[in-house]
Computed example of a mutant assay.
Amino acid sequence: MATIRSREDQDGITIGWQAQIKRKGFPLQVKTFRSKAEATQWATVTESEMLRGVFVQRTESEQTTLKELLDRYSREVLPTLKGGYREQSRIKALQVGLGTYSLAALNSSMIAKYRDKRLSTISEKTGRLVSAQTVKHELGLLQRALKMATMEWGIALPGGIPTVMVKQPSLPSARDRRLIDDEEARLLAECANSKNLWLRPAVILAIETAMRAGEILESFGTADTTTGVRPQKTLGLQWADVDLKKRTAHLPKTKNGDARTVPLSTRAVATLEALPRSMDGKVFGTTYEGIHQAFVRACKRAGIEGLTFHDLRHEATSRLFEKGLNPMQVAAITGHKTLQMLKRYTHLRAEDLAKLLG
């Protein structure tokens, strides 16, 4: 049986009620409440859970806020992850929206309200509504942090991990922009006229290999607000990793964390052979930020609308299928881990499929 005692101040005035449960096989449970009714209810529920074998020690989850958990996750986990710096903005958003709640109080309803509020929020960075993809990444981070708390740090959550019961925001349809008609010729012609001499070979390599922009070019993140330093996001392609005789480009670090070796077409090899060699070992003597601006201007001059540099990866992936490669072969080249993700980057033309039918 639980023991319920009143708590008095120095003047003998009752200021609260303490419930204490001593039961063999369980740690001592002590909690103080404002009213006797609350203390009695807690003791009844806790003893019932002990009898049914479903009791969960709540002390640490009640004393730990989500902000504190995410701070620990930031200190101990993010430094071990490739691209962990990208999670900092997501942690900040979660701490602003849910950080004051204890882990024990956090539930699926709160998280669903957070999801809906974020989807209706204007981003300070872009001036547009926060995207469904951004919110999905935030909920994914929250789930990973809660899972770490329960599995590695011994913080039991009374109701389990609440994020698993929350519906993910619906993502927009995958982009299906491909080069049409003579757009490739027009684009490359304007790339050749660009002041950025690296633009045309970078575009050709993207079309021929399906490599991500960061796998081709060095790129940087947002500058730190205190130091002004922009962290390096990707190193870009290095000559040390290119073998023109074997016609391969090795990528030791990729977005999904796995290394892969990309085969080079005859056109890709010819493009690389024509490039000058630099002392720093980089294949391209520019950054993605520099290429991006030059690419936008080249598209405008060529009269091409709605095309992004990342769309070239879609184009290249689709062409690999049109050449007759099977999904496993294409995934080995592009680095996609699942066929579902590969499908999002693949847009086959009906006329090309008709040719295969004979």
Rank of each mutant, 00 (worst) to 15 (best):
V45I: 15
K245T: 15
V166R: 02
L81H: 12
H314T: 00
T334F: 01
T40G: 04
A189W: 10
E38F: 01
L103K: 05
N107I: 09
K24I: 09
A270P: 09
S131I: 00
S173C: 11
R58S: 11
S89Q: 15
V45Y: 00
H137C: 00
V45D: 13
G221I: 07
G281V: 08
R178N: 02
S109L: 15
W198F: 04
Q329A: 09
N326C: 13
Q10N: 14
R260Y: 04
A156E: 14
L353N: 09
G228E: 06
I304Q: 06
G154Q: 09
A37H: 13
L66Q: 09
L325I: 01
T64D: 08
A149F: 07
W17P: 10
R128N: 10
D9A: 07
N193T: 12
E208D: 12
L320G: 06
K300C: 03
M148S: 14
R52C: 14
K125V: 13
D224Y: 04
D176R: 09
S120D: 15
D224Q: 10
D280P: 00
K343T: 02
I155H: 01
R247C: 06
M1S: 10
L187D: 03
D352N: 15
E152Y: 13
R7I: 15
S278Q: 12
K300A: 14
R301C: 10
K92P: 00
R90E: 12
A298H: 01
S61M: 13
D181R: 13
T248G: 05
A185H: 10
K233G: 06
Y345E: 01
P231S: 09
K36F: 02
L348W: 00
A259D: 07
T100K: 15
A223T: 11
T14Y: 06
R186V: 03
M148H: 13
T261C: 06
Q63P: 11
E183K: 08
T334E: 00
L244Y: 02
P169S: 05
H347R: 08
S278Y: 14
V203N: 05
Q18A: 04
H137P: 04
T65N: 01
A274L: 09
S35Y: 10
L141F: 08
K92Q: 14
I216S: 12
I161C: 03
P27I: 08
Q41F: 11
K195Y: 12
P27F: 03
H310C: 03
T121Q: 11
L141A: 05
I304G: 00
S173I: 03
E289S: 11
E152D: 14
G306R: 10
A354S: 03
K31I: 03
V269T: 10
I13G: 07
D176A: 14
H314D: 02
E8K: 15
